[in-house]
Design a protein around this nucleic acid. Sequence first.
DNA 1: CAGCTCGCTGCAACCAGTTGCAGTAACGAT
DNA 2: ATCGTTACTGCAACTGGTTGCAGCGAGCTG
Lengths: 320, 320
Amino acid sequence: MAVTIRDVAHACGVHVSTVSRTFSAPHMVNAETRTRVLAVAERLGYRPNRAARSLTTGRTDNLGLIVADLANPFFPPLIKAAQAAARAQDYHLFVADTDEDPAKEEELVMAFSKQVDGIVLCSPRSSNKALERLVETIPFVLVNRRLRGVTTVVMDVARGARTAMEHLAGLGHRRVALVSGPSGSWTSGEIRRAVTDVPGLETVVIGPNAPTEEGGVAVAGRVAAAGVTGVLAYNDLVAIGLIEGLDEMGVAVPDDISVIGIDGSITGRLYRPKLTTVAMPTADAGRMAVDLLIKSMSAATVLETHLVVRESTAPPKGLP
Amino acid sequence: MAVTIRDVAHACGVHVSTVSRTFSAPHMVNAETRTRVLAVAERLGYRPNRAARSLTTGRTDNLGLIVADLANPFFPPLIKAAQAAARAQDYHLFVADTDEDPAKEEELVMAFSKQVDGIVLCSPRSSNKALERLVETIPFVLVNRRLRGVTTVVMDVARGARTAMEHLAGLGHRRVALVSGPSGSWTSGEIRRAVTDVPGLETVVIGPNAPTEEGGVAVAGRVAAAGVTGVLAYNDLVAIGLIEGLDEMGVAVPDDISVIGIDGSITGRLYRPKLTTVAMPTADAGRMAVDLLIKSMSAATVLETHLVVRESTAPPKGLP
DNA sequence: CAGCTCGCTGCAACCAGTTGCAGTAACGAT
DNA sequence: ATCGTTACTGCAACTGGTTGCAGCGAGCTG
C-alpha cells in the first residue's frame, strides 16, 4: 500500500491531524513541527490521497472540459487557453471528446460530475431540455449555447455571418447557399436566422450537415446543383472540405463559386485558395469560460449582510 | 447535500450494504429487492460518489493521457482512438497537455496519479531518469519512447526516416539537411541516428528545434543558408512551417529545395505543394497504448495455477 | 427429522483524509 | 498569584461507500 498520513504521523511522533494540517493549513502548525513533518513526508514519499480529501471537503480542484470533436482545429486553441487559465488558479483541467454524440455528452457529464468541481461544455449538441437537467447537477458554463439561467460564453457569430453574406452581396452575388451545421448546434441556428434576409440576396439552406471536412466533401454535389455562385459554410473545416469536393467535380473556387468559412481555425498559409472566413476569438472563449466557472463556484459562498437601522437605536441620553 | 447510499437504504427499509451491492455486485441481491432499490435510487436521483468508492476499492476506472501539444494535428487521431479503446472497456479517459514542458509532464503525472488507474504518456520530453521515477508510482505506458522495463508503443520512425532520405538520394540530391526536434525527444534521436550514414548523402543536422509550425518558419533561414537541396523535417508541422518560411524568402519548394515531413498528420488535400511525408499509424498507437495499459493493470491479478502430478496419487486399489 | 448447503441480508470495520472541539503550556496582564 | 489569551496539538467524529463475516430462513439430502 501507499504511504498514508498515519505512517507519517507515526514516524514523526505526532497525531494525524497535525500532519493533515501541515498540508492543508500550514499556518496552524508550529514552524519547527512543520519542517519536521515535511521532511519525514518527503523521506517516506508521502502523497496526499485526493479521493480521501475530496470525500470530506467535497472539492476536487479539478475542472472538466467537454468538446464535440478534438480533431476539429477549432478546439485546440480553446482547450489550451482554458487549461492555462485553470492552472493559473490551481485547478487541473480534464478534457474529453464526445464525437459529436449528444448521448456521450450526457454520459461524460455524469462521469465527470463527481470528480470535478465544475464543467465547461463547448458547442453542445444536446437539446435544451437535456441540458437543463444536466446543469442542475454541477456548476456549469456553456460555450456557444445560450440557455436561461446558465452562465454562457457565446461568440457573436450571427453578426459575423451576416457580414460575410453582405460581403458576397457586395461582390455581386445574387443567389447563395448556406451549408448549415449539425442539428443540435445552437450556432447553426443563429447563423441561419442571421442570413435569411440579407438585402439583395437569395439564400438557400443546405443541411443539416456534419461539421467535418468529410461533411464538406459530401455536400459539394448539392451545392454545385443548387445554382448558386457563393456559399457560407458552417465552419472552416466544412469550407475546405467543400472546396475539395468542388475541385474534384471540376468546379473552381473562387472562379466558379465563392466559399466563406466560419471560425478562422484553418490558419495554414499554404492552403490554396486562402480561405475567406469569419474569425472567432476561441482562445478568449476558453479562458473566459474557465474564469467564469471558477468565479461562479466561489460566488455562492460570500453573501453580504447589511445593517438595517430601525427604531431600537438612538444616540445616548444627554447628547444634543 | 447530495443524496447518499444511506438515504436510499433508509427509504427502502434495507441496509446500506444491500444498496451498495445492487450497484457493485447486482448478482448478490434478490431480483425483487434489486428492482425496488433501483426504483427508489432513480426517484431520489442517487448517484454513487466515485471518490468514496475509489477510497475503498483503490480503483477509479479512469485513465490519463498526456500529450505534448494538443494543437499539433499529430495527436487528435491518437487521442480519439485511445478514448474509444478506453470506453470500450468501461474506462474514462482524461486528457491533458504539457505545452512541450517537461516540468508540466511531471506535475501532471502527479496530479493524475491519485485519480486515474494508469497513464499513457505520449512523446515525453523528460529525461530517462525523471521518467524512471515517474513510472514507479502508477501503471504506465509510454508512446514514442523506449525505456527499460516499461511497456512502450513506438513507431519505427528510424526506418521511415531512412527511407525518406534514400528517396532524396534517389532523386539525385547529394547534400541534405535534417531539422531535428526538441532536445527531450526520443524520436528525434532515433531519426538522427538513422539518417547519418545514408550512402551517397551528406547530411547536416539543424536543431534542436521547436516541433511547431512557427519552429519550421523560424528555421528556414538556417536551412536556406546550409547549401542543401533537400530537407527532412522532424514532423509535418515543422515541414509546412519550413515551406512557408522558405516561400517568404523566395525559395521555392520543391523547385529549389525538396522538403519531406514525418508523421502524415497534414492531410489537407488543398495544401500546395502536397507534402511528401513518412506516415505513421497514430490511431493504432493510441488504441494499442490503452489496451496494453489495461492489460498490464489486470495482469497482476490473474495468476494461473497448474496441477503437478508426482507420486502421492494413484488409481484406487483393485483396478487393473 | 437432523444436518446441509444456498441465497440473501445485516453488521461493523475499514479506506485516508478533514475539522470542530477540547486540552495544555507559555506568556502577559491584572 | 490568578486570570485570560494565544498558539499549538490531540481526540474523535465524520465523509460515502465496500466487503468479510455471521446469521437466518428455505429447500434438499440421507
